[in-house]
Write a protein that binds this DNA or RNA. Structure first.
Length: 742
DNA sequence: TTTAGCACTTAGGAGCAAACCC
DNA sequence: GGGTTTGCTCCTAAGTGCTAAA
């Protein structure tokens, strides 16, 4: 029923979808125009036009599938990295990880080279930094470097000392890093041999607010019980948020709030509209303000207190290595903030007690001590899982886990495996594509549906689309769960034949809107699947993700629907980088190319973001700066002309005049460089307005592609990955040579 | 064969600290 | 030095996909 209702109100989806990118392809078109408008100097113009605008990007899947009848290109086979469970992975030393073209340097020699390289790199970097400080005020400071006051001039010795310290710190970090990728993998299913930690950190108990803060019902002051007061505060502190205006949110909140009330409170407070949270809200705002205005000392004390908590709870010991925990804090209670039109938004997310928490650690480890007066729900010693603690949340009844940080061995190893599976797909993707193109003509309906779904997953990087329980979550879909109302077929559209128009809400209720020309066979099949169906009916009524994945795993071990997303994302990055970047470009231009390649992937994967609130203003500010710089450049050019003229008339042998000409020349050059840099920045920012690059960078792009590109292009890795990302991808940074091919 | 439970990855937004700029 | 902007980290919701039980 719910579905039918929603389906009939298809337009409702369109209205309710977050006001984000309305059409990522259209938007990309706009991007293209803006690119042209914004880059007006001849050089940058040339660069901009040379670089493909993101909407023009044809992914490998699209290219391959649309020319399916073309001869199949033979691609080099990837190495035999074993990912199946129970099989030991070869030691890296012997492993030709990056194919035959890779350097055969042993890890040790590699390390030596690397360390040497580090030194050289650092020296070069230091030199660069020195000269940059003079010319480029806007350059970001190297991470970890203490802020240097511009007024205090450091002596040469001090600079040298700072440089040495930096190198030493880097080396120490390098030394202490656990190079797990050089170790042998454990036997099937075993995730660790020893695990010790201090358990999760619990949020502080609720502190009742002072007596002078009143809650009013129907105009009268009401002293609430502690439990009811806490929940009232949850609502009051969200009053500035749009959530509290939503009917579902308010209803769910009120229902759950009443459950926390005493019977007297319940009989009195019957209508949310009559509740006045004004004073509580004001108190909350004052607290936020006070926190903002804390003195330096107070802020420092708070920081130190937090640091202590991190030190105590933020790390664990895993197989004798200290590893960071990703989320060591138990989620505090509050009101559930589901995304999109979530039917459970506003419900009370209850406080988790130690009695709700299961601890997982080694038998022989020091068992974490529960908070005073409490006990754990259970202490278990399961080394086939990676979590340290877990509890069941009360909204969906799902399990929440405390797990390790992304830079840990457990996460890193899995990540590496993920990319190896995707690389393996590269070697058989042509066969798989031929197979599903062939299956489009199958006599069996289920096979045809599977083929069309696969075509979408491969070509458009759609998610698999597991089934969801109605009424439990927002109505979102993926490929297999697409419904009749989510696509519209056009025999002809905008000069293209056989166009499928997609319009649905995907993960996180992010709208997917796209008009895609497809091959005739796919189009005819879709027509067939839609026959005698109406809104609310499944498009692929014979198919689900489990059937699809079963089929995929029979084609290649470890292959599932989501591997296509990883594969197509990574291969797109690699191709785009090849196409867009130029060795002769400067670093800023190379960065623009990288970001554009990254953006092509983000568009493919539909990674959107809300435009930053201050976007228009900051864009206008940047434009103003560009204009000012242009004026400055014009002036500098005039002055140069004047100086040249003077030198010519007064005799070219005058050294003073000659040096003036040289200085003016340098000024013009500097101005031009700064202008170009700003224009590149403006282009990049504009193109990025509604696209989130981070998600693909962190989850879909094989970091080895980036590392190899950086090496080839002589771009410092720090320009692409920040510190956290470098830690996460330490394995890739360490093992990748310039000739790596995904 | 279907469903439920479980373990894990992927995702966007909020808030804050650092960087930037006048 | 102080206001503004930017980038990073944290937070936790929302997916995927596997396995075992019904």
């Amino acid at each position: 029923m719910g579905r039918e209702k929603d389906a009939k109100g298809d337009g409702k989806h369109k209205l309710k979808a977050k006001k984000k990118l309305s059409d990522h392809h259209e938007s990309a078109g706009v991007v293209g125009d803006l690119v042209k408008n914004r880059t007006k100097t001849s050089r940058s113009k040339e660069k901009t036009q040379k670089a493909k605008s993101p909407n023009k990007v044809k992914t490998e899947a699209q290219a391959s599938v649309s020319s399916s009848s073309d001869s199949v290109k033979q691609e080099p086979h990837s190495d035999d990295f074993t990912v199946s469970k129970g099989v030991k992975r070869k030691r890296i030393k012997d492993e030709p990880t990056e194919g035959t073209s890779q350097s055969a340097a042993s890890p040790t020699s590699k390390r030596k080279d690397k360390q040497h390289g580090h030194k050289e790199e650092s020296e070069v970097e230091a030199q660069k930094n020195k000269s940059k400080v003079k010319t480029e005020k806007t350059v970001k400071k190297e991470e970890g470097e203490p802020p240097v006051s511009k007024k205090v001039k450091r002596t040469k010795e001090e600079v040298e000392e700072a440089r040495r310290l930096k190198i030493k710190k880097k080396e120490e970090e390098e030394q202490s890093r656990w190079r797990w990728w050089e170790e042998e993998k454990y036997e099937s299913g075993v995730k660790w041999k020893f695990l010790e930690h201090n358990g999760p950190y619990f949020p502080p108990e609720y502190q009742p607010f002072p007596d002078n803060i009143n809650f009013c019902y129907n105009g009268k002051k009401v002293k609430l019980s502690l439990a009811a007061e806490e929940v009232a505060l949850f609502f009051a502190q969200m009053l500035d948020h749009e959530y509290t205006t939503k009917k579902v949110f308010r209803e769910n909140f009120f229902k759950d709030w009443r459950k926390e009330m005493t019977s007297e409170e319940r009989s009195l407070i019957q209508d949310l509209e009559k509740c006045d949270f004004g004073e509580i809200h004001a108190m909350h705002k004052a607290k936020v303000e006070a926190r903002k205005n804390m003195s330096k000392e107070e802020k420092l004390a708070l920081k130190e207190a937090n640091q202590k908590i991190v030190e105590e709870y933020g790390f664990c010991l895993l197989d004798h290595h200290k590893e960071r925990i990703g989320n060591f804090k138990i989620e505090p209670p509050g009101l559930f903030r589901g995304r999109g039109e979530h039917p459970k938004q506003g419900m009370l997310k209850k406080r988790i007690q130690p009695e709700d928490v299961i601890i997982n650690c080694s038998k022989e480890s020091r068992i974490p001590v529960p908070p005073a007066g409490h006990r754990w729900k259970e202490v278990r010693h399961d080394n086939t899982v990676t979590w340290l603690a877990s509890w069941t949340e009360n909204i969906q009844g799902s399990i929440k886990y405390i797990m390790l940080n992304a830079n840990s061995k457990l996460k890193g190893e899995k990540d590496w495996e993920k990319y190896e599976v995707a690389r393996k797909l590269k070697s058989c993707v042509d066969d798989i594509r031929n197979q599903y193109l062939h299956d489009l003509k199958s006599k069996q309906m289920v096979t045809r549906q599977r083929a069309v779904a696969l075509y979408f997953i491969d070509k458009l990087a759609l998610r698999a689309g597991n089934e969801k329980e109605e009424g439990e979550t927002a109505d979102t879909v993926g490929c297999c769960s697409l419904r009749f109302e989510h696509i519209t077929l056009h025999e002809q559209l905008d000069g293209n034949e056989y166009v499928v128009e997609f319009d649905f809400l995907g993960k996180d209720s992010i709208r997917y809107y796209n008009k895609v020309p497809v091959i005739k066979k796919v189009f005819k099949n879709l027509k067939l699947f839609m026959e005698n169906k109406e809104p609310g009916d499944d498009l692929f009524d014979r198919l689900n993700t489990s059937l699809l994945n079963k089929h995929l795993s029979s084609l290649m071990p470890g292959l599932t629907a989501k591997v296509f997303r990883t594969y197509n994302a990574s291969i797109t990055l690699q191709q785009q980088l090849k196409e867009l970047s130029n060795k002769s470009d400067n670093v800023a231009e190379k960065m623009l190319s990288y970001n554009r390649a990254n953006r092509a992937v983000a568009i493919l994967c539909n990674h959107q973001r809300a435009p930053p609130k201050t976007f228009d203003q900051s864009m206008a500010n940047l434009q103003a700066k560009i204009d000012a710089r242009k004026e400055q450049l014009a002036l500098a050019k005039t002055e140069l002309k004047q100086a040249k003229k003077e030198a010519k008339t007064k005799g070219s042998s005058d050294p003073k005049l000659q040096s003036l000409v040289e200085r003016k020349k340098a000024a013009v050059k500097r101005c031009e460089e700064q202008l170009l840099k700003m224009e590149v920045q403006a282009t990049d920012r504009e193109e990025n307005k509604q696209i989130a690059l981070g998600t693909s960078k962190l989850n879909y792009l094989d970091p080895r592609i980036t590392v190899a590109w950086c090496k080839n292009m002589e771009v410092p890795i720090e320009k692409i990955y920040n510190k956290t990302q470098r830690e996460k991808f330490a394995w890739a940074i360490d093992m990748t040579e310039a000739d790596f091919e995904f």
